[in-house]
């Protein structure tokens, strides 16, 4: 094999069999974004794989675990912060419940694989359940499922190919819908329609802003620290900077 330049476009499986498979010059995958600078473009010149790598799985898990810990800390402090909202308009406390939704959107934005949002939010919920939240194990997991699914559906609607800020906002809103549906059935089934309406709208707006916009900004900030260098999300952001 000496002397042969093994071009890294070859699939890893092919490389595993020892066959050098240079990429035909005409097979250029579509660039991820037209604005992407040249370094990222050169790295991204290949078909985007939707298969999860080990690092995708582990980092999604770890982000979920860290988010679960942030939820835990938030669980300790949220009541005095959000309760005043409930006094202004009952149900409006859901505006800040968006904090519980950021894990899914963040996971989706970082990992960019099918199921990432759902998986990350679910892991976060399981961690909360294991370290003990006031909501009881299975219920916490159920709400994580609903919230993650809301964000996941939005990423799927964009075919796991668009991760701009408006998609993040929509994903946050989707997570908000998931949360509202689950909470209104589980916790507030007996509420007035007015309460339910306020809760529903607040959850969506809160999800869009807190989980959507903030997660998007978070990914950019994370990328600048170099922590996402093994992810397209990280390489794109640093290339733009």
């Amino acid at each position: 094999m000496s002397g042969i330049v093994r071009v890294a476009f070859a699939s890893r499986a092919a490389a595993g069999r020892g066959k050098p498979v240079p990429l035909p010059p005409n097979e250029r995958a579509r660039p991820v974004h037209s604005t992407t600078a040249k370094i990222a473009a050169s790295a991204a010149v290949r078909r985007r794989s939707l298969r999860w790598r080990v690092v995708d799985i582990v980092v999604a898990s770890v982000v979920g675990v860290a988010a679960g810990l942030v939820f835990w800390a938030w669980n300790l402090v949220y009541a005095p912060i959000t309760d005043p909202l409930a006094v202004v308009a009952p149900g409006a406390q859901a505006l800040l419940y968006g904090v519980w939704l950021f894990a899914g959107v963040l996971g989706g934005l970082i990992i960019r694989k099918p199921g990432a949002a759902l998986y990350t939010e679910l892991v976060a919920a399981i961690v909360s359940a294991l370290v003990g939240t006031q909501w009881g194990g299975a219920l916490t997991i159920l709400s994580g499922l609903a919230q993650g699914l809301g964000a996941e559906i939005v990423f799927a609607l964009f075919l796991y190919g668009n991760y701009r800020v408006y998609v993040a906002v929509l994903a946050g809103a989707g997570a908000g819908i998931g949360m509202a549906v689950n909470d209104l059935i589980t916790w507030y089934p007996a509420m007035d329609l007015g309460f339910k309406a306020v809760y529903f709208v607040s959850a969506i707006v809160g999800g869009a802003v807190v989980a959507g916009v903030l997660s998007w900004l978070l990914v950019r900030a994370l990328a600048r620290t170099g922590a996402l260098s093994r992810f397209a999300a990280g390489r794109e952001a640093t290339a733009k900077a």
């Binding site: 080990v54 582990v58 980092v59 770890v62 922590a227």
Partner: peptide, 25 residues
């Protein structure tokens, strides 16, 4: 929370490498 995320993602990336090195995946 941000600092924790940075630390955790870095640690996660290292852990992923360690797991792959033990034949995982």
């Amino acid at each position: 929370a941000f600092a924790l995320l940075v630390l955790s993602i870095r640690r996660g990336s290292k852990l992923a490498t360690a797991m792959e090195a033990r034949g995982f995946g």
